[in-house]
Design a protein around this nucleic acid. Structure first.
Lengths: 338, 338
DNA sequence: AAGCTTTGCGCAAAGCTTTGCGGAGAAAAA
DNA sequence: TTTTTCTCCGCAAAGCTTTGCGCAAAGCTT
């Protein structure tokens, strides 16, 4: 039970003036005499007065809090994005409250209403893997509460979003494999409902087509983005009559899990199977062989999302769709075939 | 600019009753007739009324927000701890606002006063690496605002803390090295001001003594916990006239950086140099060789810290010091000497 | 039928801040 | 000297909720 902090009332009583006078003095209102203004400001400093954000929030109907919902917290990807959001938020005097949906649709809805109860000024979020319907955002949109999606998005003609050039990147990876002499290129994809999965699959097929390779449905295995499902997917691929000589994982976790499984089966990377991930993990350079991967500008993505929120919060501008560029960083895991 | 949400006033006007009646009806106060109570509750539901936390906060002088300060966000370690804190917070109807001090003393103070301005109900934090004086917590303590430290702590007779058995773990690692036939055991330590550094060094020396090995100051190199400084430390160690045959890194980043540098110099792990980290990183099992390390119960540490906060928030109980047990997980990187 | 207890609801204050308006006293103008 | 104009400050309301107290009408007792 901490005591009540010093308020305008505290100052007013100490100086024997009215609350409104103190308020004005602190804001250097011309109505207040210079001598009194001076005394008020000095006492405020001594007592470490700071305006009560609750009272201000009530008055201005603004909490200066942004709600952030991520599918998971304990990943380099989302931690880095959050870090980007935070940096912009701080610069503009906002606080952020983070909630994790744990990739669950139900929890996503819970987080959403929970944050709205807190009266956040807006929501910046990434869809959960299970999310297939988007009606739970109706209320937000109707109320005019700013909403921004990043990475996994929906309703992008109504809501501002920031994504990466998924299709182009996936295409680039596929063609890179071909350039390294690979012909049977597999893709461990994400959940079909997610735009990132769809776009990366599209890029994969685009790359195959561009290189004159036929699409083989056997080589496209979905996953739920978890290490376990990626391991299972890898096992499936390697057990094929004609196993792949290259695997492209939809994200970092997937790629690492695939690497582990390939090595476990005694196959060599890249001699037998080439591998590329979709990540900016620091650990890509620690594993052996070092993982070729698509650098994902996560921090930048977070900053952009926050900037898009600010845009909406200032005045209702039409929603913008920002596409960030990725970069293919070639390391060891996608070397020449033996 | 979102419109004002529905308030008691909205309901009162719609039903032509007073605000206080609505308030009571919603809380099933016996003074309100059953028929009216019913009507009020129904309308509240239809209009999705939820009490304004700002008004409640003002009234009860409680924001239900916990401030969390970490030295860095984008690490598995802190992300996992935050996740633990969040899980407990949610269960008890609290929100958490996270701020990163970026390992800077100045920023740590900034975050602190910033969160206090927000009127958080308490602070859960991990000291920055630069923090050597602890007077900035005086005001908190004096005001009776709950404060909890985790991992890197100070003033532990006044403030509740949660840490791991650093010394015991470091001792265990050292003796494990000896059991694997190592004699020149090095330690890449953390900043001397931190309790974790001190305790791990103490455990290191305790282990050496227990095994009858002399302490060699050359084999104890400090770092600032960053990959760069760990790389430099490793280079220093390997350039020694009598280089170490075992290295114990103070944390995950350090261990991974050391591994990279050792491999870069063409040395074999564990044949030439054994390596052990202090982490619970998923990636310990992805790198090659798989990293032997001390499992750090991060999620549990977060939960415990939150629980300690709740303890303080309920009533002022004497500060407790919780020590969590770690576990040495032996993998490949600490195998027998060749 | 007169007095008493319930029953059911509203008033107002407190918590903190900002801001339009009004008012008292002093200085300036007539 | 009287009127006007500043100068400087306080009152009160609004934003939302809870809660002690007061009050009216209805029900009850005798």
């Amino acid at each position: 039970m901490s005591k009540r902090p010093v308020s305008l009332k505290t100052l007013a009583q100490a100086l024997n003036v009215s609350i409104s006078t103190v308020s004005r003095a602190l804001r250097n209102h011309p109505d207040i005499g210079p001598e009194l203004t001076q005394r008020v400001q000095q006492l405020a400093q001594e007592l470490h007065y700071s305006p009560n954000p609750l009272a201000m929030g009530l008055l201005k109907n603004a909490t200066r809090i942004i709600g952030v919902i991520v599918p998971a917290l304990v990943t380099h990807f989302f931690a880095s994005i959050i870090s980007g959001i935070e940096s912009v938020a701080i610069e503009h005097g906002y606080y952020i409250v983070i909630r994790s949906s744990d990739e669950s649709f139900e929890k996503e809805q819970e987080c959403l209403s929970n944050l709205l109860q807190l009266r956040v000024e807006g929501i910046i979020m990434c869809l959960s893997q299970e999310t297939r319907t988007y009606a739970h955002f109706d209320a937000l949109l109707a109320a005019g509460t700013p909403l921004v999606f990043f990475d996994r998005v929906c309703r992008s003609n109504e809501v501002p979003t920031v994504v990466v050039d998924n299709q182009a990147a996936a295409c680039r990876i596929t063609r890179h494999f071909v350039a390294q002499g690979r012909r049977r290129i597999a893709h461990i994809a994400g959940p079909p409902a997610l735009n990132i999965s769809q776009e990366r699959v599209a890029g994969y097929r685009e790359g195959l087509a561009a290189e004159g390779l036929a699409f083989d449905a056997q080589l496209l295995v979905p996953s739920d983005l978890s290490a376990e499902s990626a391991t299972a997917a890898t096992q499936l691929l390697l057990a094929l009559p004609q196993p792949p000589d290259a695997i492209f994982g939809v994200n970092d976790t997937t790629a690492f899990a695939a690497m582990k499984e390939i090595k476990r089966q005694g196959l060599r990377i890249p001699a037998d199977v080439a591998l590329v991930g979709f990540t900016d993990e620091y650990h890509a350079t620690v594993v052996e062989p070092m993982l070729t991967s698509v650098m994902h500008p996560t921090f930048e993505m977070g900053r952009t999302a926050a900037l898009l929120f600010l845009e909406q919060a200032q005045g209702q501008v039409p929603p913008r769709q920002v596409v960030l560029a990725t970069q293919l960083v070639v390391r060891e895991s996608s070397g020449q075939k033996s």
